[in-house]
Design a protein around this nucleic acid. Structure first.
Lengths: 199, 199, 199, 199
DNA sequence: CATGAATGAGGGTTCATTCAT
DNA sequence: TATGAATGAACCCTCATTCAT
């Protein structure tokens, strides 16, 4: 009865959605929600802008979908780091490697979360969730650091300072890579960064 | 006829300019060039939007003025760090303290430079200058690090990695403070950050 | 190869056409040509919007088909009233009963004709025809009224006024029923309305 | 301090508002909320469409303002008819004369209320208020008719039918005048219409 | 110097219509 | 016959900017 099978349509839909999301990610990461035009997204995805509205209610929904994906990723890593076996240093090292890898592969996602804070146009709900997640992340990190200090594996000092510095470093790398990664494509290795926390 | 002396007018002009610039800084830092509306700036500065056009040709000029001010500040610090007397570590430490202080007092300026990269609306010239400056800053930092390593004051390792990590840390702090400084107002002290470079 | 006979296809075609027309009628009557979306029509008819274009060239054609059907109905009644035997009052009474019945059964059709006047999107030709028909109807009515007055069956007075009032009453009932028929489902009987014309 | 006095601005604002409302009234009455474009309103009012947004939040607000004005007018007439001295017939006659006059002067307002029912775009609140008002009006009318019947001044018969027919007649005149008033500019006089209710 | 009325380019979004399957 | 993916014209609205006062 159906001219294209339902299955085919399903596949097309899913592919196009991902296609558009992928194109939007880079743009949102670089320019933010407001400064990114739907036309830009459509052009980057090589579809008409009308089609984008076939798949997403509006620009905000594309943005929100992406940011939630990013937040989910962070949550997942955080939970693993908290619950995994090993010494505190092992776990912080694992966490750091995950983050650094994420930054290298997709610095966009980190920038997206930051963009969440830069515009009134972002739905309040999303901004709140992003903020909570960020705070939760710092908390987890601080907790691991305290444990590490107790085990003598982490340098002494205010754990808030250490968590803040470590996290800032990661965040700064994402920002840096997004904006001058093409001109200065240097990524420090994990050792360099972990040195921040070593005794 | 005129109840105001020319001098008074001069003073008023200058005060209003600064007033508007000051109001615009926070807004641009948080929202970027495009998402910041002239009305917002005028409201924040408590003047009519028409008046803003007496003092600045357009929105771009306000933005440009602010970014150039920020870049000039960076250049000045950089040059001092390069030419000042003392051991390499002394000079890096001084540079770090200047940056950290700047971030605490006015994280806006750092964000402004980042915003420069986020929008096509920014004049090409300005973006180029900001990029050059950023690269020059990393270069200076790397140079000091190399000198410090030769003097045995800085930890061994790829100086590019070290410079990149150190710089990312500072940048990350600015971003973090701008966006969740009000919720998580923790600033690491200089020692914590300098630990990144210590042997 | 084809499991369906040509005849069956014929029947399906005709049924679907009527189905779509029926669904469109209510929507057009309530919302007008522009505010009624093809998607709405398709949904109401329980077909895909693509299918609607198999049966009709475009939205305008659906609207036009419906309005013409409405106008044809009016013409037919008018002609019968003009040519039927009986006293003038008999014929006016018959005309009134036909109208009232039509309004009760399908107030949509009357509204459709009104909608014809509300939008530039309606083809000029159709609007003109609707206007002509309306004028012709008033003319016929006035003619019957004059005859009735001569026969002493209709109250004295300006026949234009009488025709206009009588016609307005009918039109008003259609409008009223369409828009608050569900809240105030009262229909006056023919006697009440005919009283307008009785001596 | 102010270049134009506040008073002057006040006046300009008020004049322009009325100007735009006036232009919008005819258009909304003829075409409804959705089919009336802001550009049309602006053109009719001889201002840029941007200016319309200086004075009204959006198209809906213009429409709402007009409809509320119309409803207020109806309420006022209704209340006067209910509370004024005189016999029931006197009061119905006064009510009829007010309505007929209103229809002649500004059939637009009556059409506006009808348009309220034709589009989902109209705020629910407004539609509800319009419906209530319409029902209240019919109620008032029916009440007066009952009193008139008791006084022997109104023809016997179902008062709901009488009220409905009388009201339909008025409404139909507004519709008719709006849509073919220019071609058939006949208005029945009050006597013709009142005959509907006379014994 | 200061205000805010006025303009219109530009961007978000809707929806009629086409067309591959 | 039937579907819905895809396109783009057209409309709503925002906001940078101009200018009369």
């Amino acid at each position: 009865m159906s001219p294209r099978t339902e299955e085919t349509n399903q596949r097309i839909r899913e592919e196009q959605r991902q296609h558009i999301l992928h194109a939007a990610r880079k743009l949102f990461a670089h320019r933010g929600l407001i400064a990114t035009k739907m036309t830009d997204i459509a052009n980057a995805a090589d579809v008409s802008y009308g089609l984008a509205y076939h798949y997403f209610k509006n620009k905000e929904e594309i943005f929100t979908t992406l940011v939630e994906r990013a937040l989910d990723g962070t949550v997942s890593i955080m939970e693993q780091a908290r619950s995994m076996p090993g010494t505190p240093l092992d776990r912080i090292t694992w966490l750091g490697s995950q983050m650094l890898e994420g930054l290298k592969d997709q610095p966009d996602y980190t920038m997206l979360v930051l963009q969440t804070f830069t515009s009134e146009a972002v739905p309040q709900r999303l901004r709140e969730r992003a903020l909570e997640q960020s705070m939760a992340f710092l908390d987890t990190l601080r907790q691991l650091i305290v444990e590490g200090q107790e085990a003598g594996q982490i340098v002494a000092g205010n754990p808030d300072y250490l968590a803040s510095a470590f996290s800032a470093c990661m965040q700064g790398l994402a920002v840096g890579h997004t904006f001058y990664g093409s001109v200065y494509p240097v990524y420090p290795d994990l050792n360099t960064i972990m040195h921040l926390l070593k005794p």
